[in-house]
Amino acid sequence: MSPARGMALKLFALFLFMVMASLIKASSSEVPSFQAVFFRSFFALPVIVIWLAARKELSTGLRTRSPAAHFWRGIIGTSAMACGFAALGLLPLPEVTAIGFASPLITVLLAAALLGEKVRSFRLGAVGIGLFGVLVILWPRLSLSPDKMNEAAMLGVVLVLASAGLRSLAQIHIRRMVQLEQTSAVVFYFSLTATLLSLFTIPFGWVMPSGPVLFMLICAGLIGGVGQIFLTSSYRFAEASVLAPFEYASMLYALVFGYVLFGEVPTGIMMIGVFIVTLAGALIIWRERQLGLARGKARRTMTPQG
């Protein structure tokens, strides 16, 4: 294990994902979200295949025991991606990123409901704090009078919340899948399924993008594929509990990219909400780490018979 290397890989992966999101946002005025999903997924496939071939895992890494599980993971993940991409065209990049932090909070609740995981009062309290932070971020949108309410922005809020919920559901599904499936297979078949599913939306508004937008979409797919590899690789060098706090580096990237590329300046209320959500996430991560250490200590003191 090399935690420093794992941290560096995770931070670089998140940077690449923010570059990808910026490219998708820049192209959103010209192409619909499902068309962007196609480019993001299709052009990630060769990157993933080359990576597996270089690791000599092409024959084993794509082996699957449950094609149906990959199909449903693809349905959920593709829907989440499409909602997120559509929201990027309607809301500032920092706001989309901040609201998206609701996903790990929702995952805690879904894990309790669908997987039967025990969620005690500490984590429930942290989830409540985090959801309050999301409400603070959304408050300027919700407090507008009906005649002043920006319908496009409200649709963006609905889409990014839907994306967060679907991503949480996908995480729960993946927790079940990885008990039987290799991570490489989960990554590859998701990109493949998303590519195929997005093709069914061709009759619903696909357009021929201009040269610059086409270039941005292709780059988004390639960069997204590379980012996925760096993210996956980061967990080879550090534990998930060590890397989890670095997820919030996405917010710093979003603030810089949003300001430099799109002239988006976050409001004070939004930053207060971001602080509350980040605090809640940090509490959950800390609690998960403490529970993990306790479980590890218990295993070390068990007799050989268990």
Rank of each mutant, 00 (worst) to 15 (best):
M1T: 10
S2R: 13
S2T: 09
P3N: 10
R5A: 13
G6T: 08
K10Y: 12
F12A: 15
L14C: 06
V19D: 13
S29F: 11
S29Q: 13
P32I: 13
Q35M: 13
Q35L: 12
A36I: 11
F39N: 00
F39K: 04
F39R: 02
L45E: 07
P46V: 12
I48T: 13
I48G: 02
V49Y: 04
L52T: 05
R55A: 10
K56H: 15
L62K: 06
L62A: 05
R63S: 11
S66A: 11
P67T: 10
P67A: 08
A68P: 09
A68D: 10
A69W: 07
G74T: 01
I75P: 02
P94A: 03
P94D: 02
F101A: 03
A102K: 02
S103D: 05
S103L: 05
I106H: 03
T107N: 13
A112G: 13
E117V: 10
V119P: 10
V119C: 12
V119N: 12
G125F: 09
A126E: 02
I129H: 01
G130W: 00
G130R: 00
L131I: 07
G133R: 00
V136N: 03
I137E: 00
I137Y: 00
R141W: 11
S143C: 12
S143Y: 06
P146L: 14
D147S: 11
D147R: 14
E151L: 15
A153S: 12
M154E: 11
L155I: 15
L155Q: 14
G156Q: 05
V157P: 01
V160N: 05
L161S: 15
S163D: 07
A164H: 02
R175H: 09
Q179F: 09
L180W: 10
L180M: 10
F190H: 01
T193G: 05
A194T: 00
L196Y: 04
L196I: 02
L199M: 12
F200W: 09
T201C: 12
T201Q: 11
P203Y: 02
F204G: 10
W206R: 09
W206N: 04
P209E: 04
V213I: 12
V213R: 04
I218R: 03
C219N: 09
A220Y: 03
A220T: 09
I223E: 07
Q228A: 12
F237W: 08
F237N: 06
F237G: 03
S241V: 15
V242S: 12
A244T: 05
A244H: 04
F246M: 08
E247D: 15
M251R: 00
L252W: 01
A254Y: 01
A254S: 15
L255I: 14
V256L: 11
F257I: 14
Y259K: 04
Y259R: 05
L261E: 07
L261V: 06
G263Q: 07
E264W: 06
V265P: 02
T267I: 06
T267Q: 06
T267Y: 03
M271S: 06
I272F: 03
I272N: 01
I272Y: 01
I272V: 15
G273C: 11
F275Q: 09
L283D: 11
L283T: 08
W286V: 09
R287I: 10
Q290H: 14
Q290E: 15
L291P: 03
L293T: 13
R295W: 11
R295I: 13
G296L: 14
T301H: 10
M302S: 14
M302K: 13
